[in-house]
Simulated scan of single mutants.
Amino acid sequence: MNTDFIKLTDERINTDLFSDFHRHQVVTKCHRKINGEWVIIDNPFVEDWGEKEFEYLVKCLKNTVRTGGVVIGAFQSSKLAGFASAENTFFGSRGQYLELSSIHVTEELRGSGIGKMLFRLICEWAREQGAEKLYISAHSSVESQSFYKAMGCTETEEYSPPHVENEPCDCQLEYRL
């Protein structure tokens, strides 16, 4: 099936956009940094977004667009198959980072290459803005970390305190553009 990748405008981002999107993930194992070493631990839980989570997401994505960032949607047969966003605020000791703030693929299409293409499109946008690296505060599940590793991400050289405080269990990664 063909996938269309579209830069989304503020007007296009609403809760109806996510009506057929399944942000569901069964997690059994996660990465954790313990005593300075990365280990995999048992940490079973289910992440399943509902109406409240999508309403909050819409507010965040609209803010991203309004503040000069980018939101890219992947569509199959006019239905949202995945999306990614990046913020337009540089940070880091040299202002080298832009943040990949979200990347998600609907549950039934994970592993189809949509996430890889969204990641590449965000990288292209960040390069055009003049960033040296993407900063990613990434879900610590083994599956999510496998995706980022396959894309070439590594542990960040500079941890961003606000990101660590906001999501202490996330893995702080970077991708050199």
Rank of each mutant, 00 (worst) to 15 (best):
W125M: 07
W49C: 04
A74L: 08
H24P: 01
S112Y: 03
R127S: 12
R32I: 02
E108Q: 12
Q76E: 13
S144I: 03
E132D: 15
Y148D: 03
F18Q: 00
N2L: 14
V65D: 07
H139Y: 10
E132N: 10
D4P: 05
E155Q: 11
S112I: 00
K59W: 01
L118F: 07
C60W: 05
Q96C: 05
F21C: 06
F54G: 05
F54W: 09
V70R: 03
E87F: 05
C169E: 13
Y56T: 13
Q76T: 14
V26N: 08
F83I: 01
A138P: 04
V65T: 08
Q76P: 03
G95C: 04
D170H: 14
E174T: 04
D4R: 14
V105Q: 03
H163R: 09
F83V: 00
L118S: 08
E158V: 08
C171Q: 08
F90I: 06
Y97H: 04
V164H: 03
S78H: 11
S141N: 06
R120G: 09
W38R: 11
S160G: 01
I122N: 04
S112R: 03
G130E: 09
E51C: 04
I34D: 02
F147Y: 03
E55D: 11
I6K: 15
R23D: 12
D10F: 14
T106A: 05
V27R: 02
H163L: 08
Y148V: 01
G152P: 02
E37T: 12
K149S: 09
E107D: 13
V105W: 04
K79Q: 15
T154N: 12
I41C: 08
F54Y: 15
H24R: 13
D20Y: 12
T67S: 13
F119Q: 02
I13H: 06
E55Y: 03
G82Q: 10
T15N: 10
V71G: 01
N166F: 12
S140E: 11
S141Y: 01
L109S: 07
T28R: 14
F21V: 08
V46C: 06
Y175T: 03
E157W: 11
G130I: 09
A131C: 07
L118G: 04
L134G: 00
G95D: 04
G111T: 08
V39I: 15
I40Y: 06
H22C: 11
C123H: 01
L80R: 03
F119P: 01
P168V: 07
E87I: 06
H31T: 11
K149C: 00
N166R: 13
G130R: 10
M151P: 00
E53L: 02
I103G: 00
M151R: 00
I122E: 07
V142N: 04
Q25V: 08
S112K: 06
E167A: 14
Q172R: 09
Y97P: 01
F147V: 04
K116S: 14
K62H: 11
T9H: 14
A126E: 02
M117S: 10
K116L: 09
R23Q: 13
Y148S: 01
E167W: 13
P161D: 10
I103L: 15
E107F: 09
P161S: 06
F21L: 06
S102Q: 12
N63Q: 11
E11A: 13
S146G: 14
Q25L: 13
A86S: 07
E143V: 12
W125Y: 10
